[in-house]
Every structure is written in C-alpha cells, then in structure tokens.
C-alpha cells in the first residue's frame, strides 16, 4: 500500500505541471481567436464609450499577462472567475453542467462495455465465421455513423413518429426519476451505439491475439470447456487493452459530448464550452478546458490503478 500511495501521489503531483501548461495554452490561445466578448454583449448598437466602460468593468483592458496572473491567482484559490456572458461563477456553473454529461456518458460507456465485451469475445472465438462477419460489420457501421446523425434518426423515430419520448429538454434524476429517464434514453442510446462499435472492435482484436497464445492452447489441451477458456483465460487478458480504451473514451466524453448535447438540447458541459467559445466567454472556456484536462488525467489515473486487476503482470511498482 505505501508503494501504491506513493505512486498515486506522484501521479497527482505530475498533474500540476500538466494543468499549468494547459492553463497557459488555453488562456493565451483563446485570446488569439478574433472577436471581442464586449462587442458581442453590446451588439451593433455599441458606442466606443460603452465598449470602453464594459471592457474596463470586465478587466479586459489589462495587459494579457496581467490578466493571466490575476486569473491564475484566482484559480489557485479554487475560484475560476465569473462568466462574462451572465456573470455566474464558473465553477458551480460548470459542475452543474458536468453532472448532466457525467450521467449520460457513464451510463452509455457502461452499457457499451456490457454489450461490446461479449460481442467482441464471441466474434474472436468464431473468427472469420458468419457471427464474426456480422459483428464486425455492425461494429464498423456503428463506428462510421456520425453521432449527430444517429441521434437525429432516433429522435425522429422515437420522438416524432412514435411520440414515445420527448424531443428537447432535460429533467434531473433528483427531481423526477421516471421523467428524467425519458429525457436521457435517446442520448444514452445514441452514445452507447457509437461506443459499442469502437469497443467491440477493440475487444475482438485483443481476444484474437490472446486466443493465439500458447496458454490458451494449453488450457484447451487440459480439457477445459470453450466457455471456461473464454471466460477464465481469454477475457481477463483481452479486457486489459479494452480497459485502457474505455479510459480514453471516458476521459474524452466526460469533457463534453457537444454535438450530441446540441442535438438533444442537453445542458451539458460540451454545450457550455461550445456556447462559451462562440460568445468569447473567456473565463468559461478556460474553466471548462482546465476541468476537462483534469478529468482526463484523473480518469486515466484511475484506469491505470485498476489495471493490475485485469493484468496481474502489471503492478504499481
């Protein structure tokens, strides 16, 4: 355990320079994009004096390095500043949106894993057979379909044609469980189907590799059933690379599935970020990207820490 604790501590310490680098890049790059948030707020009726006044009020008249130091000082105290657009504190705004994204992404990736692992294993087991061809074809199709298109098709069928599910909106689970469920079924289904394709291909490839190893031949020679070979010997080893992939997928999606959130009008982190970019809402963009980077690092740390569970050859040391 001390070795594990040291490992976790070291990894967490390494996140600090990563986050600092991200913050520097994000802060300066977002300001390189043409467009002025003050002009966007005031619109085409703005007078120079109004622009100057609001620029001063928002602190955007300071030299950019000064703005950066001030912002970094705030961040060090856990304050990501306030949105330029609506004045709301960025941290609670972001965390509120993250909850929406997190529910959908975790459910979708979880479901996708539950479908992809057996599908990939079976396809590998029956490599080049009809089942394998069908699984590979389905996975390739799902991987190739853009998420927004699939989302729109589901929305048109289940929302418009059948009228079973609402087309826009979101209800938190804390407010009304069943109603909340109706609002997330379609986005979760869309994301699940997309991720099933990726993960199935991954599981299949890993399982094929494992099935060719000598210890599998040995297991079969011992007289174990195919079920035992697959579940006890192939799956754990084939799952390890898939687990890494799940970490990458989770890390990427938790930062926001902007397109899907736009299609289903979900108030998630991705939509917040995209809206903030269009509005040149610097504090929100900076906060979201910093948070996304942190999430990515943490998710991958958790993935790495869980790795020994699937692959005994890997230890914390």
């Amino acid at each position: 355990m001390p070795a594990l604790a040291r490992y976790i501590g070291k990894r967490l310490l390494w996140t600090l320079p990563t986050l600092l680098l991200v913050s520097v890049m994000v802060f300066f790059m977002v300001r390189l994009i043409p467009g002025d948030p003050v002009q966007l707020i005031l619109g085409d009726q703005a007078t120079p004096s109004e622009v100057a006044q609001l620029t001063r009020k928002l602190g955007l008249d300071q030299p950019i390095p000064v703005q950066f130091v001030l912002w970094l000082g705030q961040v060090a105290q856990g304050d990501l500043g306030n949105s330029i657009t609506n004045g709301q504190p960025v941290l609670p705004l972001m965390l509120g949106r993250f909850q929406v994204t997190a529910v959908i992404v975790i459910l979708a990736v979880g479901l996708a894993t539950l479908i992809a692992v057996p599908a990939g294993l079976l396809a590998a087991w029956k490599q080049n057979g009809r089942l394998d061809i069908a699984v590979v074809a389905a996975a390739t199709l799902l991987m190739s379909v853009p998420s927004f298109w699939l989302g729109l098709v589901l929305l048109l069928v289940f929302g418009l044609k059948l009228g079973w599910l609402p087309v826009v909106g979101f209800v938190p689970f804390t407010e009304n469980f069943w109603s909340a469920l109706t609002y997330i079924v379609l986005p979760v289904a869309t994301l699940t189907l997309i991720e099933v394709g990726v993960l199935t291909r991954m599981v299949r490839a890993s399982a094929i590799e494992v099935l060719r190893l000598e210890y599998v031949t040995h297991a079969r020679a011992k007289g174990l059933s195919e079920r035992q070979v697959l579940l006890r010997h192939v799956m754990p080893n084939a799952f390890a690379p898939t687990w890494t992939m799940i970490g990458l997928v989770l890390g990427g999606l938790l930062g926001g599935a902007a397109v899907l959130e736009t299609v289903f009008t979900l108030p998630g982190l991705g939509r917040l970020l995209v809206d903030a970019i269009f509005a040149r809402d610097y504090p929100v963009v900076q906060g979201c990207l910093l948070f996304t980077a942190l999430l990515y690092v943490l998710v991958n740390l958790i993935v790495d820490l869980c790795y020994p569970l699937f692959d005994p050859r890997v230890t914390a040391s």
């Binding site: 929302g159 418009l160 009228g163 609402p166 826009v168 736009t262 299609v263 289903f264 009008t265």
Partner: peptide, 16 residues
C-alpha cells in the same frame, strides 16, 4: 432554450 434550429423544429412538431 433550444439552440439548434433543427431541434427546435422537431420540438415544435413533437409538441415539446
């Protein structure tokens, strides 16, 4: 709040 015009159109047809 429905940012996307297409989603808004779908919402109108769906009665949302």
């Amino acid at each position: 709040i429905v940012p996307d015009d297409s989603a808004a159109k779908a919402a109108l047809y769906a009665g949302d």
